Amino acid sequence: MPHNDPLLVDIGIGECQVTKVLVDTGSLVNLIFRDTLDKMGIDLRGMKPSSRTLTGFNGSSEKMIGTIRLPVYAGDTIRGDQRAARELLIAAVKLQQSVSLINSVAKPIHKKYPQKEENREVHIDEADPTKVIRIGAFLFDEMQSQVISFLKANASTFAWTTSDMKGIDPAVASHELNVDPTFKPIRQKRRKLGPERSKAVNEEVDRLLDAGFIAEVRYPEWLANPVVMKKKNGKWRICVDFTDLNKACPKDSYPSLTSIVW
């Protein structure tokens, strides 16, 4: 039945079952307390260190000790429990250490949805073999069929090449960086790239110029070096070192990360 009550679910995280998890669709971060990970027996050697700070609605800030990726399995759904949802929310806001009456961690009897990383490649346009998408191979056959049918019916919606993305007229929408005017612009010293990386950068610049994504400017106030990284498929990923520019912009108090641990 339709309802407006807070939604709570039972989920499995790693090898443990976590009960009464509040679903907040407006949240940009997933928080896990250090003592919770210890109780779950999670190996923290897989955690990536982080020095970022998270600021709450009440203005208080806490430093993160790192980020970690954990498999999550959906379990039974509990609906309409206003009291449990309110207690869980209050406990999270006040950063209470004892939440035994609200949340519990236990070893699961079984996993309802074993998570796998395998993907299945599907051609969604018989006339163009380059139009290939990947879907989870662990999906049920019926769901796979529904997803594939939907994608084939809407194949023209996707941008398969840069030329397919025509952009938006600035009269409709435009964005600008919120740079602090008190910061002095920084021109990074040019870094030398090897022949292979230089070729990859030139090809990427030409591709973006042809697509109209970038334009040449002269005597800019900010200068940043390209950063060239090799992807798993052997191709080059072209990025830009915006470290200095990021320092001149206001910090995002609610960064979007997989999981943040205090």
Rank of each mutant, 00 (worst) to 15 (best):
I11M: 15
T19Y: 13
K20P: 04
V21H: 01
L22R: 10
D24E: 12
T25S: 15
S27D: 02
S27K: 03
L28M: 12
N30W: 13
L31T: 14
L31I: 14
F33K: 11
R34G: 06
R34T: 11
R34V: 14
T36L: 14
M40G: 14
I42H: 09
D43S: 14
G46P: 10
P49L: 11
S50Q: 07
T53A: 09
L54Q: 03
T55K: 04
T55I: 03
F57W: 05
S60E: 01
S60A: 01
E62C: 02
R69V: 15
V72G: 10
Y73M: 02
A74Y: 12
D76T: 06
D76E: 15
T77Y: 08
R79G: 04
D81C: 13
D81E: 01
R83S: 14
A92C: 10
A92Q: 12
A92Y: 08
V93E: 07
Q96K: 02
Q97T: 09
L101E: 09
V105W: 07
K112F: 08
E118K: 02
E121V: 04
T130F: 15
V132D: 09
V132R: 11
I133M: 07
G136L: 14
G136Y: 12
A137W: 01
F138N: 10
D141K: 12
K152N: 13
K152H: 02
A159R: 15
G167E: 05
S174M: 08
H175R: 07
H175P: 00
V179L: 04
D180H: 03
K184T: 08
I186K: 10
K189D: 06
K189C: 12
R190Q: 13
L193R: 08
S198Q: 14
N202Y: 01
L209W: 04
D210R: 13
G212A: 06
G212E: 04
E216K: 15
W222Y: 01
W222T: 04
A224H: 09
N225Y: 13
P226R: 00
K230I: 13
I238D: 13
V240W: 01
D241S: 07
L245T: 00
N246E: 05
N246H: 01
K247L: 09
A248K: 05
K251C: 08
D252P: 04
Y254W: 12
S256W: 03
S259D: 04
I260P: 01
V261Q: 06
W262H: 08
